[in-house]
Each structure stands twice: as structure tokens, then as C-alpha cells.
Nucleic acid binder design. Sequence first.
DNA 1: GCGGTATACTACGATATTCGGATTATTCAA
DNA 2: TTGAATAATCCGAATATCGTAGTATACCGC
Lengths: 144, 144
Amino acid sequence: MTHATPEQIGQLTLVFERFTRRFKVAEAAAAAANSLNALDVQALLFINDNPDCGLGDVARNLHVALTTMSSTADRLVRREMITRRRPEENRRSVALALTSKGVKAVEGYMAGYYDACQAMLDPLDQTDRAEFVRLTQKIADYEY
Amino acid sequence: MTHATPEQIGQLTLVFERFTRRFKVAEAAAAAANSLNALDVQALLFINDNPDCGLGDVARNLHVALTTMSSTADRLVRREMITRRRPEENRRSVALALTSKGVKAVEGYMAGYYDACQAMLDPLDQTDRAEFVRLTQKIADYEY
DNA sequence: GCGGTATACTACGATATTCGGATTATTCAA
DNA sequence: TTGAATAATCCGAATATCGTAGTATACCGC
């Protein structure tokens, strides 16, 4: 199949640059509410998606040094948002998991996303909403 | 007009959480290429959208302390990506603008966004692409 | 026009974060 | 069993963020 026209892509780029900015605000608000920094939030989200992952997994995925992630984990453990477990099957590694407090933080974070998405759908009529959701699903499905 | 259904919003939330993660990677890559941190990049983008804005404008928009933005501006000036001008009409303030080097950095950053957007449009057929772009435009138009 | 207040930013010091290099502990493989 | 590879931690240096205090300029009521 042929690519989209440069004009289409350009238009989308401008719009999405705005969209992501809006999402960043939601992110910053949720982070501030828990007095977490941006990296901590990203780590929480990753651990939520990948329970019992190791520090290296998170560090590679978020493109930060392993030592940085170790510090981040220290912080999150201190704030009782995650647990560090030494699994019997590989005692070098750690298995990170969210505590109930961590789950709550992630929920608050997703709630901000939810609000931002609601605001996006508001200006559309019923037909366009269904269409927009359908298209985003189609894109998302394709990528995984 | 009535709101979208919770199910619609929920679906969109999940998808956009993925989308923004993809955009964050593009952002991080561009930032690393110029050895800038996340805040510096955000500031550059804001100044690009709002030429001759003041430090306070940027700080409020990005939700950081004014002093932090002052430091960021120091960095960006030192790297010759922006200029700090004292406008005659209000000599307390500063007017920030991108240098050609700053423009280039923003372009590199937007190029990452462009690629991400192209990847989003790829899985759609011609009709759906036009429709998707139309809907995102509609949402964006509504908000400003 | 004048004094007081508000605005816009900068200087500086305290605290926190990120990272690289060295180190420890565990697993794997020859 | 020894050596190499893996996973994480400890420590120190460089940097970033922020709050408080300070400086300069603009505005406003009189």
C-alpha cells in the first residue's frame, strides 16, 4: 500500500504535537499530586504493564542508566509504591511489583488521561466519535 | 451535546497511552541527539510556537518554577539555541527566540514526530486516512 | 509627577537527581 | 571448578530544580 501524503502526515504531526502536550500536562499534574518526578511515573506505568519485571527491563525501556533506575526504585520503595523481591529462580535479579498504593497512583494517572480523552471526543458528534475510536483502534491493533 | 460513552473514552485512553509512549521515545531520541534534557526540549518547542515570549510564559505553561526556567534559558543561550532580548517596550521582561541552531533542533524533533505520525497512518487505507486527519483537525480546531 | 505596589526576571544556596566506574552476588558454560 | 557473563548496588561527581531574597522596571491612584 502507498504511504499517506506528506500533507496529511504534516497536518497530523502538528495536531499530535498539541495532543501530546495536553497529555503531558495531565501527567505532570498526576506526578505532582504524588510528588513524583516524570521518571518515577514512567517507571510505575511500566511496572504496571510488566509485573515482576527487573530493573534492567525498566531501564532499557525508558532509556536511562541502570543506576538511575536503581535510585528510582529506592524512592518508589521508600514511598511504598512498589516492592523489590528477590526471586528464588534467579537471585541476582529483582522482581518489581506495584503495591496497592502504587496501583492507586497509576489509576490517578490514567484518570488524567481519561479526562484528556474525554475532552478530545467532546467536540465530535456521535457518528464522528464512533468513527474516531474505530480508526484509533485500527491503528493500535496494527502495531502489536 | 452529550458526552461520549465511558467505553469510548476508555478505549481511547488505552490507545493514547500507547501513542504518547511512542512519541516520548521520539522525543527522547531527539533530546539525546542534542544532549538536551526533557525540559529544554519542551521549552524549545514552546518558544518555537510563541516567538518573543517571556520566561514566565514558558514557566507557567510547562509548570516549572520561574527560576528553573531561568536556568534552562541560560543553558539554551549557552548552546546558542535561543536568544534573550530585552525589549524596549518592557525592559523588565525578556523576549525569547530561536536561533537557526534552535530551529534546526526543533526540526529534528518534529521529524521524529513526523515519522511516528507516518507510522500511524500506514495501516489505514486512503479513505480512512482522510477521515482520521479530518477528525483530528476538528478536535484541534475546537480547542483553540 | 510621586510613592507604593505589582511585575519580570536574576543570584545564590540547599536539596535532589542522574550517571559512570567500581564492586558484590549469582548464574552459566567450558 | 574456574572464568566469563549477568543483575543489581554503592559511591562520588556533575547537574538540575527549587525557594528565598534581591534588583530593575512598569503601573496606578492621588
